[in-house]
Design a protein around this nucleic acid. Structure first.
Lengths: 180, 180
DNA sequence: TCGCACATGTAACGTGTTACATGATTAG
DNA sequence: CTAATCATGTAACACGTTACATGTGCGA
């Protein structure tokens, strides 16, 4: 799954701009399992237009930069749907916190405690974000994937809260040490 | 976290070869949150040696290709540990299955059912792999991260089994259709 | 006898990020 | 008055994957 596919997927439900696609992929429903930046989205949209999978029209606005609104074409729809018949590629998960945790025994307890707290915080923010989205009017499949994400995230939170002390106990009990 | 860091992390616990580092990062304890291929590991090790963070020695073997055994240096240890004091970068999670699920309503039920079954299978294989590792003699921090991974993976499995029918119900009930 | 495990490495390629350039409006 | 939001786009760069090249021994 590349940025091209993400653009097509988001445009499948209605026209938008590159700016908005990025928002949806970092704050919206897709944020849980995907992420993309302007530097990849704009070129992807240009390429999609070249290939006839989307079309665009420029909308002037007063006092704001003009927006370039993209719409998916019939070909675009078919290409996206067809691609979903292909075998799925495996998930990729990169987590620096686990590498950090792996070396907890070499690090000061205060730092370990701080990083766990930060992680719990980040997970909680993510949960809140998804909970907010759940309030909205969603299609059933949207709700299903959101529920999946929430279940997973809540489990992370639970695990971290229940087991944080074990990890801190493995760290270096330095007498007086400020974490960074 | 890049491949360079992963190499350093694995070498922290003892000398090995590039070949083995890849194995550990795809089958071993690290596999849950990281993955790397030869094409990135070998150049990374060469660079690390240039920078004096690791050293190497060639071990001839009878009837087998010679192995190049890398060891971490004191500088290497310090560099790795120092890097763990830096703020952690956010997790990245890419999941094509969720994109697929998002479009379940446009796809034949047989296909949706098949893909969920495959996913459950993949998760189960992953769980088995980690359970096997748990049997081994592990350091406490290794056990902690493995338990974290297992908890997460088991939760995925549970969710999928309990909610798969809901997703299938949203798909296209095509009378007679072979999934691919 | 076929293919896998062992073992290292390079080159081409794909893909995405970061930083930069530009600039008005609005909310705090 | 300062920062964020809206809005598009490019260029340099970092990073990693895939495929290729090479070759032996062992188990099914």
């Amino acid at each position: 799954m590349n940025v091209r596919t993400i653009c097509l997927a988001i445009l499948f439900d209605g026209e938008t701009t590159g700016y908005d696609i990025r928002k949806q992929s970092t704050e919206g429903e897709y944020a849980y399992f995907v992420e993309a930046s302007y530097g990849s989205i704009y070129p992807a949209l240009a390429k999609l237009e070249q290939d006839g999978l989307v079309t665009s029209r420029v909308e002037e606005q007063k006092g704001r930069p003009a927006r370039k609104v993209y719409s998916i074409t019939e070909t675009g729809r078919r290409v996206l749907l067809d691609s979903l018949f292909e075998p799925l590629v495996d998930d990729s998960y990169r987590c620096e916190f686990l590498l950090f945790a792996r070396f907890a025994s070499e690090l000061p307890a205060a730092l370990v405690e701080k990083r766990i707290a930060e992680r719990i915080c980040a997970v909680e923010a993510h949960v809140s974000n998804l909970e907010e989205l759940e309030e909205r009017d969603l299609k059933p499949t949207e709700r299903w994937i959101l529920d999946y994400g929430l279940a997973s995230l809540r489990q992370h939170r639970k695990y971290l809260i229940e087991h944080k002390d074990e990890l801190v106990a493995l760290a270096q009990p330095e007498a007086a040490q400020a974490a960074q």
